Simulated scan of single mutants.
Amino acid sequence: MESFTFEAIGTLFEIRTAGPLGDALEWTLLREVERFDWVWSRFRPDSIVSQMRAGTGRWDLPEESPRLAELYARLYRVTRGAVNPWVGSSLERIGYGPGYELVPAGSPEPAPVWDDDHRWEGTAVVLSRPAVLDIGAAGKGLLVDLLGSLLAEAGHRAFVVDGSGDVLHAGAAPLRVGLEHPYHSDEAIGVVDLEGAALCASAGNRRAWGDGFHHLLDARTGAPVRSVVATWATAPDAMTADALATALFVASGQDLAAEFATDSWAPEWLQVFADGHAEGTPYFIEGLFS
């Protein structure tokens, strides 16, 4: 397969296709990455999200915003506030801010409650007081989906979009995916086959610093989750799979599956805990190495 690799939203992306992309499509994909980053990044000072940090008022967001907002509303409800799009201030409090200080400014603080002071509905955010929107729970998966849509629109029927472990697969030939060891990135704890769907992972080791700090927080406390060390989830789209993988750090797989299952699909999921045991659906459990 042909391969196209590039940096996007602070990590490495790879697109694999049966045939060449061509210069025009490559530029289209890169322009979409730039557009996405300009809207949603809390690390670049000119982004729309960064503007929210400093003021109050209304901000208009692009067409992907309604489904992202709806997804976060479901996650907020099913996790009882543990997944919260306003967690950005909590992340910056412990050092994960625009300057990548990686030095806590104090003890962890809970994210603001999602209420009338912080409204995100459809394509608009309205703030009565400044807040830091963070879509990290589902944003990388959303970008993977957007790039996949551009590939499909260009006529590609078999492809893989890999956003540093958030994988979208299209085509008839299944893709074998290794499950990265949560403590040794060059090792795998198992494998699964992925076909025509998305598989996403979350782990505290990818963005870790200081004395046990990482980016996967319980928004109700603002502190990193310690009991779960790695998660995986599948869904028809990468945005949902990414969101589920994040939510598995603060909620049970059974609760999330009950919320997101449909008549034609149910999420596959896996949680690996700090004490070494794993819980999940047979799809993942049977793929683990003994």
Score class of each variant (00 low, 15 high):
Ala54Leu: 06
Pro104Asp: 10
Arg129Cys: 08
Pro224Ile: 09
Ala173Cys: 06
Glu187Arg: 15
Thr79Tyr: 01
Gly57Tyr: 05
Gly81Gln: 03
Ser202Pro: 07
Pro66Arg: 12
Ala243Cys: 04
Val228Leu: 02
Asp237Gly: 10
Gly178Ser: 14
Ala8Lys: 11
Phe260Asp: 00
Ala201Gly: 07
Asp193Asn: 07
Arg220Phe: 02
Glu64Pro: 10
Met239Pro: 11
Tyr96Val: 10
His184Ile: 13
Thr281Pro: 01
Ala247Pro: 01
His277Asn: 09
Pro112His: 11
Ala124Leu: 05
Ser41Leu: 12
Pro85Lys: 06
Leu168Gln: 05
Leu270Ile: 05
Ile285Gln: 08
Leu29Cys: 05
Ser128Glu: 11
Gly210Trp: 11
Gly163Arg: 14
Thr231Cys: 01
Asp23Ser: 15
Ala245Pro: 01
Val228Ile: 04
Pro104Thr: 12
Ala219Thr: 06
Thr79Asp: 00
Gln51Glu: 06
Ala24Ile: 14
Asp275Phe: 03
Arg207Thr: 05
Ala197Gln: 02
Arg80Ser: 12
Val228Glu: 03
His277Asp: 11
Asp60Met: 09
Val103Cys: 05
Glu70Ile: 13
Ala198Leu: 02
Trp232Cys: 02
Thr17Lys: 08
Leu147Phe: 13
Asp162Glu: 14
Arg119Trp: 07
Leu91Asp: 10
Ser264Gly: 09
Glu70Cys: 04
Ala18Phe: 08
Ser290Trp: 10
Leu61Met: 02
Glu153Met: 07
Leu288Tyr: 08
Pro62Ala: 04
Pro236Gly: 04
Ala247Phe: 00
Asp218Arg: 03
Thr231Asp: 01
Gly165Asn: 13
Trp27Ile: 05
Trp232Arg: 05
Pro182Val: 12
Pro62Phe: 08
Arg31Phe: 01
His169Ile: 00
Leu217Asn: 07
Trp86Gln: 14
Arg31Ala: 02
Ala241Ser: 02
Ala54Thr: 15
Val160Glu: 14
Ala201Asn: 11
Ala124Val: 14
Ala73Met: 06
Thr234Glu: 01
Gly122Ile: 07
Val191Asn: 13
Tyr72Gly: 06
Ala266Tyr: 01
Ser264Val: 10
Glu14Tyr: 06
Met239Leu: 09
Val78Ala: 00
Pro62Trp: 06
Ala152Asn: 07
Gly280Thr: 05
Phe284Asn: 12
Ser65His: 11
Phe213Asp: 11
Pro130Gln: 03
Arg58Gln: 10
Trp59Pro: 14
Ser149Pro: 04
Gly163Trp: 12
Val78Leu: 00
Glu34Asp: 04
Trp209Arg: 12
Glu14Thr: 15
Ser50Trp: 09
Arg207Asn: 13
Asp23Arg: 15
Asp145Gln: 10
Glu26Leu: 04
Gly97His: 09
Trp114Glu: 13
Arg157His: 13
Ser149Phe: 08
Lys140Asp: 10
Val83Cys: 02
Thr281Ala: 03
Gly253Asp: 00
Phe159Asp: 10
Arg53Ala: 11
Phe284Thr: 13
Gly163Thr: 08
Thr221Ser: 14
His214Glu: 13
Gly148Val: 06
Ile15Arg: 09
Ala188Arg: 15
Ala245Met: 01
Trp120Cys: 14
Gly10His: 12
Val160Tyr: 06
Asp211Trp: 05
Tyr283Leu: 02
Val113Asp: 12
Gly212Val: 11
Thr123Phe: 06
Ser128Arg: 15
Gly171Cys: 01
Arg44Ile: 15
Trp265Pro: 04
Leu102Gln: 13
His156Gly: 04
Phe159Met: 06
Leu150Ala: 09
Ala223Tyr: 10
Glu268His: 02
Val191Ser: 09
Ala243Asn: 03
Ala198Glu: 01
